[in-house]
Design a protein around this nucleic acid. Structure first.
Lengths: 240, 240
DNA sequence: CGCTGGATTGACTCGGATCAAGTCGAGTGG
DNA sequence: CCACTCGACTTGATCCGAGTCAATCCAGCG
């Protein structure tokens, strides 16, 4: 089975055969979406829950001034806002980066899953908690890390998340993010990001080129980032 | 009844008499905690869920360099991480700002509430979603707003949240936050924050002095902040 | 009544933004 | 097969917001 969403959730809790079947059924009619398509826009009334099965997407917000802030990157297996149905309107938008395979689970079905399959519900909470941890890491980065630390930290995060779902080819990862997108996620200018990337490259830590991230020296990169390796994986409480 | 936690949740979903009783029972033995006490520290194994009934607290993280980043402010009615029990360790700490009245709900009891009282569970998700919206607003602020906009935005947020729980005296709010704390939440230096506060004061928008926030000109403040009034209240889907 | 921790102000520096040219690679059409 | 274009990436020169360092002020308090 190659449903990255189910694989991810299964890693977060012990799902039964029937749970897996239920998730499979809920995501069995995915749709192909082109690159650069909004899945949902700020102000929309939340509809179904989206699950990214293949491809990349990102959450973002456009400010009155026209500048953009990227709020999160979504990769295969990630799921957008399990309970948004409860709110009146979206406070941000979500757009595909690459062509993507996206499953939609409508609100009623999602409620059913959450109410009747507690194992699924719990796995989903874990996913949500990890996402929140990521947001806190972003806040920390923007507030108190220098630009080179921020860039290194983001790359560590993306690399590890990608590795967890088997997307890496050991020291290498296909990263379909433009420098503009990355800059908008780190609160810096594309120009400055470019210089920082150059610095990281010349320093022998990592190389980001042509949609491909190469970790030249993992130890150095982690050290520059001040990256706490724990926050994405060891955080899972081992089933006693 | 003066349990701010229950009042808040009741505003998020229609709780029955029995739900309210259950919440009351779960928070019936609160403890008084002094100011500047850590409720939980980064690296700790998550224990019970904390509910702030009176007083203020904040989430924070200390970086290797020794700098601090404040991740959130908690006020009466706020509840810390409903499902943290699922994770292995905390990725940040929580500390009281003022003396506070804190209830603890242990993990087993919380699980029981979440599993057996779906109305409570849903109200709690709503609270969680709103917190996430706040985090996204913080990320946006740090990434793409100037320092004066950031300060104005945070003050709008705090004022509105406080007003929702009846903590304001119309154009005024008792804000027990030091400039250092605010600076650490906005990713700036206390020195610079001080200058920005002066600018806002001279500009006639707001005055922050001696633990008291005074909104001199709400319209101007909102305009400076680029504050979207919706993201904290209109976001709640009206029960159809 | 002096001590202490926050708030305030000034002088100087620097990281990162801004403005402005390029350069490179992938398509596209002649 | 080469010119043309378009978007993404690079690089240089300059400017400014915010950090740093260092006094000073002030209120509460032991």
């Amino acid at each position: 089975m190659d449903n990255r969403f189910i694989e991810k959730l299964a890693g977060f809790g012990q799902l039964g055969e029937d749970d897996i079947a239920a998730l499979g059924a809920a995501t069995s009619r995915p749709q192909q979406v082109a690159a650069r398509r909004d899945l949902i826009r700020e102000g929309d009334r939340p509809g179904p829950v989206f699950v990214i099965l293949e491809g990349w997407a990102y959450r973002y917000k456009i400010l009155p001034s026209g500048t953009r802030q990227v709020l999160a990157f979504l990769m295969p297996g990630d799921c957008c806002d399990h309970h948004v149905g409860l709110l009146a309107e979206m406070d941000h938008s979500i757009q595909t980066i690459t062509p993507a395979l996206v499953a939609t689970i409508d609100r009623a079905e999602m409620d059913l899953l959450m109410d009747n399959r507690r194992a699924i519900a719990k796995a989903i909470y874990v996913a949500q908690l990890i996402d929140e941890g990521t947001m806190r890491a972003w806040i920390t980065s923007m507030g108190r890390r220098t630009s080179i630390e921020r860039v290194a930290h983001l790359m560590c995060e993306l690399y590890l998340r990608a590795r967890n779902i088997g997307l890496t080819h050991e020291p290498r990862l296909t990263l379909p993010l433009s420098q503009l997108l990355i800059a908008d996620s780190l609160g810096m200018t594309p120009v400055h990001l470019n210089r920082v990337l150059k610095e990281l490259r010349l320093g022998g830590a990592m190389t980001l080129q042509r949609g491909c991230l190469l970790i030249d020296d993992p130890a150095r990169l982690v050290q520059i980032a001040g990256f706490d390796e724990n926050y994405l994986h060891r955080r899972l409480r081992h089933a006693a």
